[in-house]
Design a protein around this nucleic acid. Structure first.
Lengths: 189, 189
DNA sequence: CCTCTCATGTAAGACGTTACATGATTCA
DNA sequence: TGAATCATGTAACGTCTTACATGAGAGG
């Protein structure tokens, strides 16, 4: 359960409430991580029960009440142990566009171009945001900055790849259509 | 449930059994996807019940019996619908090393270097394999080849980033240790 | 002899997403 | 007036991983 340790890590910097934790994970770690409340709130509750964090309610007038969590010595210990442990398992990538992409030969070229164009626009937007964020990351220490750098590099790589793919697809004269007769062909063992 | 559609996609090329499906996904799609039997076998069973595939047992002497699955017209239809549908949601990346990396400031520099070196070795191995596979992918049509190209590009990008990070970490004179006093510091809102 | 590859599967549990419910404030 | 942001949470559902069970052949 890595979400738990990521939260304990963030609480080393400062006390936080659930909503803020989400923001930090999504904005500070190269814009590479996502998380949702369905994980955050139940996990905070559980960690409180386990004595890894403590809760303090902060009532504010004219604003929603916050539940500020602080890390305990037991929490620091659990985090330290995790941090030193061997990260096993490799990088996992999942992307609904990419999974379709590999099968685009079974659809039309027009649709393929359409979807690739959408992705290009998407990654251009992301890139602009990441470049803006880079300034912020620069002030956050070596590791946070490096993570930001990675997010940027990956974004640039994917964008270039998308553009290259687009050119190739446009060039190819594929009459590929979703018809049974054209299938059951290559793919080596 | 994207696994289901990925399997239907593969069955367009040829009839396959569960074990082979796993191999194909992991080897043909840029070495970017992973899947395990806990997903494959139950899904094949379910898809058979839904009439998307049919099963044929192939008994072989001196070798385990295979259960060959073929896609049905209903399966092709379901796949076609999915392929044309909008891929919603963005790329998701998860990596146990990367998640620790961002918190390396709370550990020792030595351990950080050690783990980075391990990753460098890992990605160098992957890179060699991907370069070998590239020849095979070249014969598999535009999209499979492009996916292989992406896997390669991402691998190269990460490897370069790891090496750059290593240099920076080695250069930095961090006396960061897991002690409470050194924490609760930066990280902007 | 031992490990790897081939081959199929199940069960339990961990993990993650989606949809819902609630309600105030700020900004256009 | 309507949308966005702030803020907390739950329940149901899906998905994925891990561990287990079984067994044969190939190659070192």
């Amino acid at each position: 359960m890595s979400v738990k340790y990521a939260m304990l890590g963030l609480l080393h910097y400062r006390d936080m409430h659930g909503y803020r934790i989400k923001q930090h994970m999504e904005q500070h770690f190269g814009n590479l991580w996502s998380i949702n409340y369905g994980q955050i709130y139940p996990n905070l509750k559980k960690m409180e029960e386990e004595g890894l964090v403590t809760k303090k309610e902060v009532v504010r007038s004219g604003a929603p009440t916050r539940k500020l969590y602080s890390i305990t010595p037991a929490g620091r210990e659990a985090f330290a142990e995790w941090l030193l442990s061997d990260p096993h398992g490799t990088m996992l990538l999942r992307d609904p566009f990419l999974l379709r992409f590999v099968f685009f030969g079974f659809g039309t070229r027009e649709r393929a171009l359409q979807l690739v164009d959408e992705q290009i626009r998407l990654y251009e937007t992301h890139l602009a945001k990441r470049r803006e964020n880079m300034r912020r990351w620069h002030r956050q220490g070596v590791y946070v900055r490096q993570m930001g750098e990675l997010g940027l590099l990956l974004n640039e790589t994917i964008l270039e790849w998308l553009k290259q793919s687009r050119r190739e697809i446009a060039r190819s004269r594929g009459e590929e259509v979703l018809r049974a007769e054209r299938m059951n062909l290559p793919l080596e063992s």
